[in-house]
């Protein structure tokens, strides 16, 4: 199997490589889709198709970004394993928080703008519509992970419990993809692409000896 390949004797990227500009750059990269979307909504190109049904488009867009960032944050530790670049771990928390940020925007637009805080309708949706239930569970998990993401929380919870709690991301990510797949009308290509990438990222975590 491909996975049983020995890690390079010398890491592809020096373990400690972490230039000062890297974190701000990744921050900007993670934020740029939002900036681009806001610009498209009218500031830059009035009459852009995304502005025809902006609420619906914004919900789709933020959901896409949440899933993308979730996958990117799940790619961090496989990347370290495969390249030996330990420094990448210093980006993981920020990427995870961005995933939560986009998921929160997604939920807030749905609840606040789309349904205009009509709690009766929202609650009925959560109970009746399975894909919304699934999505809500995923967001609640991400919220718990975001709240416990500061370094101080690791100490307070104890490393073991903190790790157990954060293993819930392995539940949140498939639920997020499932939420998407259950929502589409017919075209499953994009949800399946997410599912495929997620599967690869999870397989790369299997306890296969990568080092001598």
């Amino acid at each position: 199997m491909v996975l049983i390949r020995r890690a390079p004797a010398r890491p592809l990227i020096a373990a400690g490589w972490f230039p000062r500009w890297l974190k701000p750059l990744v921050f900007l990269l993670a934020l740029s889709p939002l900036l681009w979307f806001v610009l498209r909504l009218g500031l830059l190109r009035p009459g852009d198709p995304v502005a025809v049904n902006p609420i619906e488009t914004a919900i789709r867009f933020s959901g896409d970004q949440a899933l993308t960032l979730l996958l990117v944050s799940l790619a961090v530790s496989p990347l370290r394993r495969l390249t030996g670049w330990a420094g990448v771990m210093r980006l993981r928390r920020m990427l995870g928080l961005f995933a939560f940020f986009y998921a929160a925007v997604h939920l807030l637009i749905y609840a606040g703008v789309d349904q205009f805080f009509d709690w009766a309708v929202i609650w009925a949706d959560v109970l009746k519509r399975c894909y919304i239930t699934v999505g809500m569970v995923a967001v609640v998990i991400l919220l718990a992970l975001a709240v416990t993401s500061p370094k101080g929380m690791v100490r307070r919870l104890g490393g073991r419990w903190w790790k157990r709690l954060h293993a819930l991301v392995y539940l949140a990510a498939p639920l997020g993809v499932l939420h998407y797949a259950m929502m589409v009308k017919a075209d499953l290509r994009t949800p399946l692409l997410y599912a495929g990438i997620l599967a690869v990222l999870l397989l790369l975590r299997l306890p296969v000896p990568l080092r001598r």
Binding site: V52, N53, I55, F116, V121, A124, R129, M182
Partner: peptide, 16 residues
Amino acid sequence: PRWSQAKERRIGEFFR
């Protein structure tokens, strides 16, 4: 089965 049909959003309007 997956969403309500009681309301709709008219394109160009904010409230359903």
